[in-house]
Computed example of a mutant assay.
Amino acid sequence: MRPTRYPRLLAKLPACRLGALVLLRSQAGHVLLVDPDHLDGLLLPGGPALPNEPPHLAAARHLHAQTGLLRRVTQLLAVDFTPADRYLERLNLVFDGGVVTDREEQRVTVPPRCRSGLHGARFADLAHLSALMSPAQNARVQQALANLGRALPLLVHGQRAA
């Protein structure tokens, strides 16, 4: 079967950002959050995928750039669509980053603010998340936590992401 092409659909791609985030937990059950200088409140480490960048690779890239931690992430915990407001509409994928060792927790490092756009990063107790995050960010984290143990695999062009 010959593939069909739709030049009008490809002429102007839809304006939608793809956010790739990582839920990473300490052995005590705390969640790693970053403090961006451009938003109020803390959020999960991560950021936008580059054009044509697989979201799991974007999530791992941002996690490493923001915290120094290396993780292979391929399990989806939550998908959150955010309609356009101050920014373009966006689809945020939350990946399971697993549990860090005590040694890894001590090695979390945030690059200087001028390079990272972050004030810092810290592991936060689950009981305090609602006070530290916006309601939408908190709801995203709570849903991702609720989905631990029943994550979905990420497929890239029909194959499990490696």
Rank of each mutant, 00 (worst) to 15 (best):
D102Q: 13
A161F: 02
P55L: 02
A20Q: 02
G29E: 10
H128F: 03
H128C: 03
A78E: 13
G98N: 05
P153Y: 08
G19N: 13
R122A: 12
R61P: 07
T4G: 10
E53G: 05
L24S: 07
A144W: 04
E89N: 10
G68H: 06
R115W: 11
D102F: 02
T109V: 14
L152S: 13
T109C: 11
R72G: 03
L33A: 02
R61D: 13
Q106K: 14
E89V: 00
V22F: 01
D40C: 13
F81N: 05
Y87K: 07
L76T: 13
G46F: 04
L57D: 07
A131K: 12
A151S: 15
F123Y: 03
L63D: 10
A146K: 12
V141Y: 06
Q66D: 05
V100F: 11
L132P: 11
T4V: 15
V94E: 04
R17W: 09
A162D: 02
G41A: 04
L50M: 13
L88T: 09
P7Y: 04
N138E: 15
H56V: 05
S134E: 08
F95M: 05
P36Y: 06
T67W: 03
P135S: 05
Y6R: 15
L118C: 00
A20M: 01
S26W: 09
Q159E: 02
M133C: 15
P7G: 08
L44A: 09
F81M: 13
A11T: 01
L154F: 07
T109Q: 10
D125E: 15
L88Y: 09
L42R: 14
M133E: 00
A146F: 06
P51A: 12
L13R: 15
A15L: 09
L126N: 09
H30W: 09
D85A: 12
P7V: 12
R150N: 14
A11H: 10
L32T: 11
L145F: 04
V79K: 11
A121R: 09
G120M: 00
L10E: 14
G117T: 01
Y87T: 12
H157G: 07
S116V: 01
R61T: 11
H62S: 10
L18M: 12
L9C: 03
D102M: 00
L9V: 06
L154Y: 08
T67I: 08
P36K: 03
S130G: 00
A84G: 04
N138W: 06
D125A: 15
L21M: 15
P48W: 03
V34Q: 00
A20L: 06
V110D: 01
V34R: 07
